[in-house]
């Protein structure tokens, strides 16, 4: 499995520099503390908690996930990668790495969030976990393909959130809704439409990414 070898290579080089992990961790701490300071002692309601939860996730994702392709471009190793593996294999490897990163990041965010905010109490755990997994997959896929695009463009850092936000908007709006549902304790059956939307978003994004990655990757 070449894709898995690629993933292992990324994982090893990440373990050496810890660039993405450090950036992500600091970003999570910074955004959560900014929210914490601005709220103060006030008790905020559920919908605001859910919205802020996704604000933290979005901005943390924007800080670390572009590394996947930008690092290859900076070190000039993308031509070697083009020689040893096909485009879809490269994309799978990078996607796996970003998936792991997104899941690790979001689990940390959930834990910190439920420690800090009293209003963030999940009543429907099954719904939350399902929407969490689906949302993370969508976030990882979209941010990986956008990372591939910006790695070839100039002004990499600033462009990434600008390009990602409109693409991620349907996912974020639906996920905020699902988070509100799981805090409210809505039944799983009543949230099925929103789950379907996130699922279809994931499927569409995976399909489009694999179809279009060839055009980005080949110079």
């Amino acid at each position: 499995m070449k894709a898995f070898a690629l993933f292992k290579k990324d994982f090893k080089s990440e373990m050496r520099t810890r660039y993405a992990v450090n950036a992500l961790a600091m970003f999570i701490v910074v955004t959560i503390s900014v929210i914490f300071f601005s709220i103060g002692q006030e008790r905020i309601n559920e919908s605001l908690t859910a919205g802020l939860f996704w604000v933290v996730i979005f901005f943390s994702a924007m800080s670390g996930l572009s590394r996947a392709f930008v690092s290859e471009e900076e070190r000039g190793t993308n031509l070697t990668l083009q020689l040893i593996a096909g485009p879809s294999t490269v994309f799978t490897g990078k996607l796996l790495f970003n998936l792991i990163l997104v899941f690790a990041m979001n689990i940390v965010i959930v834990v910190l969030y439920s420690l800090i905010f009293d209003a963030f109490v999940i009543k429907n755990m099954v719904l939350f976990v399902t929407s969490f997994i689906l949302g993370n997959v969508g976030l990882a896929v979209s941010s990986t393909i956008i990372a591939a695009i910006i790695s070839k463009a100039g002004a990499k850092g600033t462009l990434y959130p600008v390009l990602s936000f409109p693409i991620l908007l349907p996912l974020i709006l639906t996920s905020v809704q699902l988070t509100i549902f799981s805090i409210d304790g809505t039944k799983f059956e009543e949230a099925i439409v929103e789950l379907m939307i996130v699922l279809s978003y994931d499927v569409i994004m995976i399909a489009v990414s694999y179809m279009l990655f060839d055009f980005i990757w080949k110079d």
Partner: peptide, 13 residues
């Protein structure tokens, strides 16, 4: 080619 790719990705959303 990059802007073409981006406009297709944006269009599916």
């Amino acid at each position: 080619s990059l802007s073409a790719v981006y406009s297709i990705i944006a269009f599916v959303t």
